[in-house]
Amino acid sequence: MIPFTLQKVLTEAEAIAAAGQGGRYIAGGTTLIDLMREEVERPEKLVDINALPIKHIRAEGGDLVIGALARMSEVAAHPETQRLQPLIAETLVEGASPQLRNVASIGGNLLQRCRCPFFRMLDAGCNKRAPGTGCSAIEGLNGGHAILGTSDQCAATHPSDLAVALIALDATMRVTGPGYERSFPVDELFRLPGTTPHLEHTLRPGELIAEIRVPGGPHARRARYLKVRDRSSYEFAVVSAAAALHVEGGIVRDARIACGGVGTRPWRMRAVERALIGKAPDRAAFEAAARQATEGVKPLSGNHYKVELLPRTIVRALEMAGEVA
């Protein structure tokens, strides 16, 4: 770990000013400290934002509003989360471990870096960590890598479970910048690697995630998250799917589906959603719709199985959602 200075800030303005002077925000630090220790991350100045008053979790109208510094465990356990957006609670509990969830913030969860092993090893080429050094995974071991949204520069999956759910639920986020605020869909936070895999998100320099807003709706209660993995817990998704259904009169009126473990960013499955609208929520319809999920996949040498697993995961998540009373 390279040496750094640490500045604790008490207000958003102070934080943004510190970031303007080259500071790097740190909240829970569960990703950042780990990567600093590997010297994958090398910030020289850390800005400790944990004292900022953005830890709230509350209902506003039918929306669930979550401060960026709320901890994963707090959000998962909060009665408003469970009442308004049980999918968020379920997704959070499927991630990491209880200890990590006690520390990791919601904002940090969205900005966590990829788990590609080559990204973490300084002696391996990685365009995401060191642009221009090549991708060690694409021609190497890549069984855990993405099949969607890859480029010839990077195929690392985005590891967040929460982001999958938020994208499925059309959540928005509010960020604070130097002298302004702006809001946009969480979906717009994540970039594709393209030729710039080191650029992972669309935040501008110094911007601070303040709040996540998850709109309610008739789909919100009939929503489930399925995380498929070889180990029952404490493992990142091999493939995951968040599915929310609004069924009325025996017909799917609205469907929200997003997947993890398959894309270089959390992946919304709009074609699958469209194929479900107007159908009876049964396995046949789910299977037919899920076939849309693999359109455009580009499997690598080691991850063809994900092309098979992806639609099955979606089908199962839809079935689980459909079974919610």
Binding site: L6, K8, I26, G29, T30, I33, D34, R37, D48, N50, S73, S97, P98, Q99, L100, N102, V103, Y234
Partner: peptide, 27 residues
């Protein structure tokens, strides 16, 4: 593991269980 991947370093920090390896003391 010093990587937040095993739990052997679990302590109670202000009453909550956390991985001490991923916690900077200075914070």
């Amino acid at each position: 593991c010093n990587q937040g991947a095993c739990g052997a370093c679990t302590i109670l920090l202000n009453g909550q269980r956390v991985n001490a390896c991923l916690t900077l003391a200075a914070m």
